[in-house]
Amino acid sequence: MTDFLAIVAVGIGTYLSRGVFILALANKKIPDSVLVALQFVAPAVLSALIVALLIDSDGNIAIGVAEVSAFVVGGAVAYKTRNHILTLITGMGVFWLVRALI
């Protein structure tokens, strides 16, 4: 039940973030300072998430050679190809390969 309520809460918040200016504030401008800050939401939050997902329940970072190798190769492939499918395949491929070797 908690899970469902959490999904509903995020659903409502997401709809509002997409709709607030269309529904209610069409004549209001976002202040420039906020627009500048909003560009950095995605890179800052997503990279924080990557780290957060690698932290175990005791607060220790569970990251080894396999993860780092996968990030390096996956990051390079993403930069070169701009293709999510290739990034996923090579990143996971390197992760599995290195994990099997060590």
Partner: peptide
């Protein structure tokens, strides 16, 4: 771990 790789791709 694929979640982390996908997010890395979005960032890059």
């Amino acid at each position: 771990f694929a979640v982390s790789i996908l997010f890395l791709g979005l960032i890059v």
